[in-house]
């Protein structure tokens, strides 16, 4: 079915969230969703709820942590921040991603031989 496709997406979402938290510091789920929306320029549309699934998974792996705080409009919100392990993981994943996307890019750019 579509198991493989969503898995890739899941992993990608995880990485995007990690990167967001790494770049912007502690954020709540809504903030993360906004940031991804902004950066992806509507190429990537997602059910924002899935952000929370990602967040839970990242937290279980010890790559992010969370605490309750007050949001901009003074509501209670849960703020997520990246951990040291998370940073390490991000470096690893970024390298991986760049390597693979570089390869794929090269393959896709190949001209037919004349």
């Amino acid at each position: 079915m579509c198991a493989e496709k969503s898995e890739v997406l899941q992993g990608t979402l995880d990485m995007m969230i990690l990167k967001t938290l790494h770049a912007l510091g502690p954020l709540h789920g809504f903030g993360i969703a906004r940031r991804i929306e902004q950066v992806s320029e509507d190429v990537l549309t997602l059910n924002e709820g899935t952000v929370y699934t990602s967040l839970l998974r990242l937290q279980q792996q010890g790559w992010i942590e969370s605490e309750w705080g007050a949001s901009e409009n003074n509501r209670r919100a849960r703020f997520y921040s990246i951990t040291r392990q998370g940073r390490k993981q991000l470096t690893v994943e970024t390298e991986n991603w760049e390597r693979i996307s570089g390869v794929i890019g090269r393959v896709l750019r190949m001209e037919p031989e004349k």
Binding site: H28, F30, Y52, S71, N73, R75, A77
Partner: peptide
């Protein structure tokens, strides 16, 4: 807690 979190999110949205 999760309920609160999603509710806040929805409200902001």
């Amino acid at each position: 807690e999760f309920g609160l979190e999603t509710e806040a999110h929805l409200q902001l949205l």
